[in-house]
Amino acid sequence: KLETFPLDVLVNTAAEDLPRGVDPSRKENHLSDEDFKAVFGMTRSAFANLPLWKQQNLKKEKGLF
């Protein structure tokens, strides 16, 4: 399991300012399950079932792209 970080560490943070080991294209993977659901309004599995373009739009909207 990946290390999780608080939302404010990941949202609207440039790649070079992210904690070590965080993939800038997969910031959402480093949210706790609770934060993930609070941000996206759905579970990880529901998010994973969305088309890629919709996932990317949601990530942009939430500052996690």
Rank of each mutant, 00 (worst) to 15 (best):
L2Q: 15
E3P: 15
F5V: 13
P6N: 12
P6I: 00
P6D: 15
L7H: 10
D8R: 08
D8Y: 03
D8V: 01
V9Q: 08
L10Q: 10
L10S: 07
V11C: 07
V11P: 03
N12K: 07
T13A: 11
E16R: 09
E16C: 13
E16G: 12
D17W: 06
D17F: 09
D17I: 04
P19V: 02
P19K: 05
R20L: 09
G21Q: 09
G21D: 09
G21L: 03
V22C: 06
D23P: 02
D23Q: 02
D23F: 00
D23R: 02
N29R: 12
N29K: 12
N29W: 07
N29T: 05
H30R: 06
H30F: 10
H30C: 03
L31C: 01
L31N: 01
S32G: 06
D33K: 06
E34Y: 14
D35C: 04
D35N: 05
F36S: 02
F36I: 00
F36Y: 04
K37A: 11
K37W: 11
K37G: 10
K37V: 14
A38C: 11
A38E: 12
V39T: 13
T43M: 04
T43W: 01
R44G: 01
R44W: 02
S45V: 14
A46Y: 06
A46Q: 11
A46I: 08
A46M: 09
A46V: 13
F47L: 01
A48V: 10
A48S: 10
L50R: 01
L50N: 00
L52S: 14
L52I: 11
W53C: 11
W53G: 13
W53F: 15
K54D: 09
Q55R: 08
Q56N: 14
N57M: 12
N57F: 09
N57D: 15
L58W: 02
L58N: 00
L58H: 02
L58A: 03
K59R: 11
K60V: 12
E61H: 05
E61W: 03
K62S: 10
K62D: 00
K62A: 14
G63Q: 04
G63M: 06
G63L: 06
L64P: 04
L64D: 04
F65V: 11
F65D: 14
